[in-house]
Design a protein around this nucleic acid. Structure first.
Lengths: 155, 155
DNA sequence: GTCATATACTTCAAATTATGAACTATTCAA
DNA sequence: TTGAATAGTTCATAATTTGAAGTATATGAC
């Protein structure tokens, strides 16, 4: 009709519009992830996607803005599924490096490809808009990691 | 160092960059919401923010991409806290309209203001970038609601 | 060297949250 | 009027998340 959701949303502040958009996209992506044929939980999918290279668990915790015990549980799941292994970090033997197995790499590639496609369909943005959005999203993420991550955990 | 998180993220596809940015922002906002002095759960905060005007529970369920029983539970909490009341929708007496009380309005105003500030601080974007991001976010949200919401539930 | 303190991760029990199936009330269409 | 569909509710269960206490390693002060 005339006074529909979109029209009213236009009257809210840009920040709230941005937040609502982010929430909608987040929820939609989560929902869509459910449909992907895997036995992985959402957090397991996220961790897999973030493991573009071996990372310490503490770094992942900071990156995913969660607590260590959650990372332990998630890594346990992925390890049990044969998608990653734990290796001691030679630079600090208290820490583990999470390293994808070949099978983990394959799964990750699949997820990354599916996620990209999901974003495309869910967002409805064209290539240029996607690039623009990605640029801002990257800037936001940089800012969050910069302000939210503990000192020295930038590996 | 040289090969830091941000640099590597730049090598990923725009879609994945966008998704990671969205996830980072979502998680950061969730985390920040915890610090706001309320007795509300996250979902209760979200629902409150979405109630810029009376809405049917089914509309909220579609909007928040969740199931009816979750909406029932969330509305129960807000009703118990005196922040909203249920009114039968005169156009369809099976449906409830969720209407904010005066106290609910106040709480919502507070949350909207805090959320805007949170976005500002978490994202680190300036006004123009925020506007740009908001525009794209709105477009995304429109697309998601258009494709995800059941027919006729645009009230 | 060694002692005290800090860090990286794990364990586990408890709390929170989310879900789906079965149910009530109302509407709609034939 | 009747049968099917829709709006929301209830409730038991499942999944997720957390925080506190524990182990092992590292770091810095003496």
């Amino acid at each position: 009709m005339s006074d529909d959701i979109s029209t009213r949303l236009g009257r809210l502040s840009p920040e709230i519009q941005a937040i609502m958009g982010v929430y909608a996209l987040y929820w939609k992506l989560e929902e869509a992830f459910d449909c992907v044929e895997t036995d992985l939980s959402h957090l397991e999918c996220h961790m897999l996607i973030k493991l573009d290279q071996p990372k310490r668990m503490g770094v992942l915790a900071a990156d995913m803005l969660t607590v260590p015990s959650t990372i332990t549980a998630t890594a346990d799941g992925l390890e049990k599924a044969g998608l990653l292994i734990r290796e001691r970090d030679p630079e600090d033997r208290r820490a583990w490096l999470l390293v994808l197995t070949e099978q983990g790499q394959e799964m990750r590639n699949m997820l990354v490809s599916v996620a990209g496609d999901l974003f495309h369909r869910a967002s409805g943005l064209d290539a240029e808009e996607t690039a623009q959005f990605a640029r801002l999203a990257r800037k936001i993420r940089d800012n969050i990691l910069k302000t939210g991550i503990p000192e020295g955990l930038t590996k």
